[in-house]
Amino acid sequence: MIPWFTDPQHWNGSDAIGLLIGQHLIYSAAALAIALLIGFPIGLYVGHTRRGVVIVAGTANALRSLPSLGLIVMLVILFGPVFKSDLAYLVPCLIVLVLLAVPPIMTNTYAGIAAVDPASVDAARGMGYSPLGVLLHVELPCALPLIFSGIRSAALQVISTATIAAYVSLGGLGRLIIDGLAQRDYYEMVAGAILVGLLTLAVDLAIALASRLALSRGLVR
């Protein structure tokens, strides 16, 4: 395995490891950002108002049961005539990654807000916080641990699934696995697998660190 990693050929050119990691991170970050823009406000709204709980839970469950590979190939074929260039592959991939990332962010945000001690919310309302003040100063800070864990599982799923992008001729670390398979180069496949594993581990650690820094010591015991 070590010779594969030390071979300079694998660090240069269009399949350079650094480039693949960069692509992988860009797909994932873009999908995560869009999913946050969608899932976070919905979760806040549902958690604060308790309206639409059934719809949110049902949607999240339905999205979970969709096979991501099937969805990507379907969208690639459907969008093929619509987009030119790589967009025909990129847009389907992003859509599917967003669909994967929205449920954990949405449900965890909702659950985090809903789990805030009702006594704290009552006290906040009673002392004269506006509804928005209650949300921003009490409910949101108290819900942060669960929101972070939602973002974490969304990020891990997105990075994991982004490997499939290579199958529809996009970049990312999946390239190594798919190309390795096509060329019966098992070393390349294993290298891809190891790199994806390391990448998820690194992102997992980064998010854990960020949440440790962001969370009040009153919430993490």
Partner: peptide
């Protein structure tokens, strides 16, 4: 509403302290 509530101290059974603040 907010002005009214800020004039009145409010104490409840389980205190309802904010867990994220010291």
């Amino acid at each position: 509403l907010a002005q009214l509530r800020r004039k009145i101290g409010y104490v409840i059974q389980h205190a309802g302290l904010f867990p994220h603040l010291n």
